[in-house]
């Protein structure tokens, strides 16, 4: 039991974005957060890390409500990688990763040996050690996402939240990145669009629609043809070629188009 949300709701402009959501990501595993656009994935992640406060319900870290903890203490446990972080500041990769030490450093204190080690470690684990001196603006999209993950790792978190980290990445980098997240071994929650990526890399998936949890479980249990048709409105063929509980999804067409098309 690490980070958990219990009956969390949140509204914006009079519309419910989250409507009584409860999730409990299994420790040490990768949890995929699925659902169409506007289903509340990003908002749930922002509530989980405490950037947004829930209107009702509670998010707990080791059983203690997030609202009772200091921001700094939360940041030492929970790290977040945003969808597309950007900056105007001329930072090097090492500068970006050092930002991860912010919650561990006191005001006026220089970088300690432990800080240096954490930064070095994070660069090694993300394969960026040889690019530490490159500036942010010279990095490719994949390198930027990896730098953000390195920054998050430098926080030495036990929970890692990622909001659609594979957006804007090419195929190889999408797989590299999710492979990296799997190898980290920290409790991770990843919002994803691609169901096959979710099936390949997640141990547990939660499907959201209109701010509510539709179903949660292993990819094999959850990602069925019926669910995909129901939540995403597409017709799909789901097979399990390796019979390892990691299904393969082939999308055949949208349901709405077929309904609109005249029967032959």
């Amino acid at each position: 039991m690490t980070l958990a949300a219990d009956r969390v709701s949140r509204a914006a402009d009079g519309r419910l974005i989250l409507d009584g959501v409860g999730i409990c990501p299994p420790p040490g595993a990768v949890t995929g957060l699925l659902g169409p656009n506007g289903s509340g994935k990003s908002t749930l992640l922002r509530v989980l890390c405490g950037v947004l406060a829930p209107a009702s319900g509670v998010v707990t870290l080791d059983g203690r409500p997030l609202a009772d903890l200091r921001r700094r203490d939360v940041a030492r446990r929970v790290a977040v990688v945003e969808q597309q972080a950007d900056t105007l500041v001329e930072l090097t990769v090492a500068d970006v990763v050092r930002l991860g030490r912010t919650p561990h450093r006191r005001a006026w204190a220089p970088l300690s040996g432990a800080d240096e080690r954490a930064v070095h470690d994070a660069l090694e684990r993300t394969g960026l050690a040889d690019r530490a001196d490159r500036t942010w603006h010279t990095l490719s999209g994949g390198e930027r996402q990896r730098a953000q993950i390195a920054r998050a790792l430098a926080q030495e978190p036990r929970e890692l939240l990622l909001d659609e980290p594979t957006n804007h990445l090419d195929l190889q980098h999408q797989h590299d990145l999710l492979h990296l997240v799997r190898e980290l071994g920290v409790t991770s929650v990843v919002a994803l669009h691609d169901l096959n990526l979710a099936a390949m890399y997640c141990d547990h998936v939660v499907v959201l629609r209109q701010g509510r949890v539709v179903v949660a479980g292993t990819p094999g249990e959850v990602l069925t043809e019926a669910l995909i048709a129901d939540v995403y409105g597409v017709r799909a063929a789901v097979t399990d070629p390796d019979a390892d509980g990691r299904p393969h999804i082939r999308v055949l067409g949208t349901l709405t188009r077929e309904r609109a098309a005249p029967a032959r």
Partner: peptide, 24 residues
């Protein structure tokens, strides 16, 4: 301001990132 130097660094990627880095 010098006492907040680390905080100012953390604002490089915006307010939300600063917040997830433990800044009030």
């Amino acid at each position: 301001c010098l006492g907040h130097a680390g905080t100012l660094d953390a604002f490089a990627f915006g307010q939300d990132t600063a917040s997830t880095l433990g800044v009030d």
